[in-house]
Nucleic acid binder design. Structure first.
Lengths: 338, 338
DNA sequence: CATATAAATGTAAGTGCTTACAATTGCAAT
DNA sequence: ATTGCAATTGTAAGCACTTACATTTATATG
């Protein structure tokens, strides 16, 4: 069952059938209806490969992410897929882990599938040195690249991200103002957003002319019990802290577990702030204060930008927006500390 | 840059180039090397659409799920994508929500993209009446369908699932044996696995000749605070319960929040059992006992089955395996109750 | 009613690959 | 040198569409 069969049954040429397939307006309403009726009756579905070949697009975009079972990345993938689908685009998902080599490999794989664009979900795609980001530029030479939560200034690369530095600085500042002296920052990985968060943390101290010790910033990539362990050791080594900010909620909950084990009062003895405002944060007790970086908004924005790029409209290459702070039981930064 | 350019540069015909592209062994080693070298040098990438047209496959499978931002479904999608990719298949992701109409619509959309197979992630794809499952059978007429966590006996439909009934029955039985009299079952939706879980719950009572009141089973689709609310009302209505089993961890954590609010001791006054063994379960305090339905195993199995189906090998249409119980702080069913 | 013009439709040449079948080549046995 | 056979390579016909351009048909104008 192909376009020839349909054209025969409808008594027209294949060109006309193709035109109705593509919504070309140069077809009389009568024949259009006739052809649609024949298609319907025959249960005809156009062959996507042949269309792809002729049109040089199959209206699909590649979504690359490190690990879509991570709750945060999963949500991002979900929102992106939803928004793209709203615009009649399909998504090819590919999870590539955190190794540079694999990111590169799977980005190329997506390109070889002739996707119309690639969305890099997560700040971990932007590395710290230009050479390591070359693979993105190479890809951008072929199709537009959208980066979610990371920023890379380059041609045909479009970024949608939250101002993590400002948000972290804001919250850190409030904690300092409410009398916390010994804050700790736990950061999972040294990704683009991780760097920005740490910069914000440092900035808050600088703004108040306060000194920051190097062990107040911990790059740590562990699970909840491992965080608990790590903080115990830190404490045993004599590092004191009355507040922990973290680059995600899981790390902060690790700190909460530490506090419980030590019998510390939260937020009295120890204030906690997570990041991403995930569901995990409302499972614990007290519930976790978290910075909400408006992922859904960011994805909607990214999809909108992408659609414009694909239709050739001019768009800004960077969209930066500010985060919300969702205060719950692990802090009292917006109330007065008792 | 196409196959003709390569054939010219290598001084061979396009057929030979195509042969090395497809790993056909009827090419002398010398010319193969020559052609590979030319491809490499020219940076040639075969056009996936044209290959798709010629081979009638692009080695992609469609993954359909209700909502990939749900942590459990997200993990399933992740594992499936990973396993499929290991077998050189790509994944087109499509999230269709819970409406029958949309499931049908997006399943058809995936088929129109000429995927080689479709994986239905989640038991919610199997409806309770045969007519409602017709859309799956229709699809199975075109490509193999894999169902994760659900079961539907039909041609070209393959299911990989955990024995939810047995697991629920086992845990419920233990709770009854350790002296709990008034158990409650919270079930999010009346999906295939939801039904099986409830059947297991009923079975455990039947096995002990104990009577089960209708309000001991609650179909409830709400968030954590809503569950808390619902249980309060239930309690106020005079329904007593000393144990809550739930069809997922979130519901169980809602019950935990209820216990905290009421000042109930967990597990002393109220035992709690979740399902899926999610990360949420280790965020709360005490940590949640949960039934682990071995999602990763199930996905690996599903992918293996699918690959065999695609290569024409015979495979069982149903793989059923048993769940693990991960006991944590919200129960004492494997220790003696004090 | 002839003509100009616009609208609708058809013809045929791509699009880049696969593969059945035909043709050529290489090589050992006669 | 000739033959037979297998291994290798080439030719050309698909695969199911799109679309520039040509042709036909309908409509409006004088």
């Amino acid at each position: 069952m192909n376009i020839y069969d349909i054209s025969k049954k409808a008594g027209v040429s294949i060109a006309t059938v193709s035109r109705v397939l593509n919504g070309n307006e140069k077809v009389s309403e009568k024949t259009r209806q006739k052809i649609l009726a024949v298609m319907e009756e025959a249960g005809y579905k156009p062959n996507a490969f042949a269309r792809g070949l002729g049109l040089n697009t199959m209206k699909t975009v590649g979504i690359l992410c490190a690990n879509s079972s991570d709750a945060y990345l999963a949500s991002a993938v979900y929102f992106m897929e939803r928004e793209l689908r709203k615009n009649d685009y399909n998504s090819i998902l590919c999870c590539c882990g955190y190794e540079l080599e694999d990111k590169q490999k799977y980005l190329e794989l997506l390109l070889s599938k002739r996707v119309d664009a690639v969305v890099l979900v997560g700040s971990n795609f932007v590395e710290s040195t230009p050479e390591k980001n070359k693979y993105i530029l190479d890809a951008a030479g072929k199709v537009p690249i959208i980066i979610l939560n990371g920023y890379l200034a380059a041609d045909n690369v479009y970024c949608s991200l939250c101002d993590d530095k400002e948000a972290t600085c804001r919250v850190t500042g409030r904690l300092l103002e409410t009398g916390r002296k010994n804050l700790l920052y736990l950061c999972r990985a040294f990704s683009y957003s991780g760097q920005k968060k740490i910069e914000g943390f440092r900035q808050a101290f600088a703004d108040k002319n306060m000194k920051l010790e190097e062990d107040q910033i911990q790059i740590f990539n562990g699970s909840i019990p491992e965080v608990k362990e790590m903080l115990s050791e830190l404490s045993n080594r004599g590092v004191a802290f009355d507040g922990v900010l973290a680059s995600d909620d899981e790390l902060a909950i690790g700190a909460l577990k530490y506090a419980k084990e030590k019998g510390l009062c939260v937020p009295g003895d120890l204030a906690l702030v997570g990041y991403n405002n995930s569901k995990m944060g409302i499972c614990c007790d007290p519930e976790l204060t978290s910075i909400d970086n408006k992922l859904e908004f960011s994805c909607i924005n990214a999809a909108t930008v992408l659609m414009k790029v694909l239709e050739g409209s001019p768009v800004p290459s960077k969209t930066l927006f500010s985060a919300d702070v969702v205060e719950r039981g692990t802090t009292d930064i917006f109330a007065v500390r008792t």
